[in-house]
Design a protein around this nucleic acid. Structure first.
Lengths: 331, 331
DNA sequence: ATGAAAGCGCTAACAA
DNA sequence: TTGTTAGCGCTTTCAT
């Protein structure tokens, strides 16, 4: 910047003003632009950030990038944030609480302006340090008790209830569930929806029909094997996330089980995958696009009007069932 | 840092020395640590970066985050880079040349120490500006003529030839191909492998068996429909990326085509998906883990020994065929 | 081993 | 509208 000041004979403030949309006389504007061209000048954001104490960067901490649900949400958020002048710094913590905490500390040091987090640690201890900075935090997909911040969630209980009801309506009474890790709030809620809907429908819960997976493909395979082995009378399975759905489909294939002739199935997420299954899988679908929009929107709102200390909000979005051909009509 | 200097009565240089592994007397070390605790001090990386003129951040520019091949590679690279003290700034350019150029410019301003790029623009014009900084660039998956930098590629021609040969060995002679966009080097190479292997095997090329898709799911569906309609005698299809493979499977399902009874198929990438197909899909598999390792490794090497201006290297990795049950033995 | 001081590239308050 | 100046939080000579 000094160089371009020298070259144009202008003061630093004028140049700065030029870059920040201030008023600069047409003549000088020209001069500056020529100098920029000649010097191949590029603003140094690092210096600017130091001065303004804002990095125009949002940290995003997620359990696995290599997970389509996460990837879809991130893609959507990044798009919106970028269009508002914000960069995104993504940290994949590999579903590891320690790495998650390190990621947040790292983003602290990097002085990001806000953090969007799909939390692994349900206690939320990893966020405490960042929260002290007073900068905004937005939680997505999973809630944390006791961390006061905005959240964007999905109505998981309803989603599970819908799935169970759909199976019931098709005559199923022995409905297995492949749930997620017990610590994770989404998994708890989906499980709760399963139980409450069974109760609603006056179907007794059978322990052996309930398996807790770990939200991974391999976990889905194992859970499917276990369910099938333990429950010869089971006619349907509800799988509660995408990775395990894939696993359950793999398990069925490898066990030689026909869907839906032998077992009906309702999966979770990823419509293209559901379409690629033969027969097409019926799934619960989460509105990833909307989650991204809401999360980015809330973050931007917090960032723009710091003063408008509006109360923290929790958005709860609806899921939908996308019908396929993986449910057999019984009797 | 001033505050902690004041609190301990030490000079700034000592504190700085403490943070950078310098020699500090045990006594003072203690004092500093106490002060840090009391003040909840955290290093400001922005300031440090300004001074050292290095951000310890690598920019990654890819066509689509929402693409498992990309996501897997990024996950792998991020892991390695993080373990070496480097952060990663990911820019998803949505397969858009303009956004890609903007991403690179953006990363320039952010003063990243290097860029890893899976290029959309085969001309490579978007990289020129960054290259002037003298900082390292590593290209992955696709090559660019005339940009002098390191690349990590895969032997696409061989991969395609292997697939064709395998189909040939199973008796297939009418082999269709769903290729990718003509501008993309990987697509060209895979197409080249198809042609050269057919020539090797003395099979005449039939125009109608060659379709160019666009590397998307929907493109795969359309391409499959087109192939089937135009080529009643076709017995096998080779699909040249993951998204289109998914599309081809969807297309087959929706057209009611049995794999492999009516048409045999060789897909590309994503082993879990291949396993989830019924019957299991035979695929060409790329070593994403290794690509990530190589790319991150080369980047780190360039970053460490700036002087050791070793010549630019092009790594070419091998693909593998993972057998499934989607190829019928003819006669 | 420690301290004093200069400066990285920028912005912003103030003065002209 | 433009120029002068101070300073963001750190690192890094150079003395001590």
């Amino acid at each position: 910047m000094k160089d371009i000041a020298k070259l144009t004979g202008l003061g630093l403030a004028t140049i700065s003003s030029y870059f920040n949309g201030g008023n600069v006389r047409e003549k000088n504007r020209k001069k500056i632009e020529e100098a920029i061209e000649e010097l191949h000048y590029e603003v140094n954001e690092v210096a600017r950030n130091l001065k303004t104490n804002a990095t125009k960067t949002i940290g995003v901490v997620i359990p696995e990038l290599n997970n389509i649900f996460c990837a879809e949400i991130i893609t959507g958020m990044e798009d919106i944030l970028r269009n508002h002048g914000y960069a995104t710094m993504i940290c994949d913590c590999r579903t590891d609480k320690k790495l998650e905490r390190e990621a947040v500390e790292f983003l602290c040091r990097k002085r990001v302006d806000g953090i969007i987090n799909m939390p692994v640690d349900a206690e939320g201890g990893h966020l405490k340090a960042f929260q002290k900075t007073g900068k905004p935090i937005v939680l997505i997909d999973r809630k944390i008790q006791g961390v006061s911040c905005d959240s964007v969630l999905v109505d998981n209980e309803q989603a599970a209830a819908d799935a169970v009801k759909l199976l019931y309506e098709n005559g199923h009474r022995n409905i297995g569930i492949i749930g997620g890790p017990k610590e994770i709030s989404t998994a708890q809620e989906r499980m709760k929806g399963y139980f409450s809907e069974l109760k609603n429908l006056d179907i007794p819960v059978r322990e052996s029909l309930v398996v807790h997976g770990d939200y991974t493909i391999q976990g889905g395979v194992r859970a499917m094997e276990e369910l099938v082995e333990k429950n010869p009378e089971m006619t349907a399975v509800f799988v509660t996330n995408y990775e395990m759905t894939m696993g359950a489909v793999i398990g069925s294939n490898e066990l030689g089980i026909q869907i839906p002739d032998q077992i009906s199935m309702v999966g979770f997420d990823n419509l293209p995958f559901a379409r690629a299954c033969n027969p097409k899988l019926t799934i619960v679908s989460q509105p990833t696009e909307k989650i991204a929009e809401k999360a980015a929107g809330i973050m931007l709102a917090r960032l723009e009007d710091r003063d408008g200390a509006s109360p923290y909000q929790t958005e709860k979005l609806e899921t939908a069932i996308i019908p396929g051909k993986s449910i057999a009509q019984i009797r």
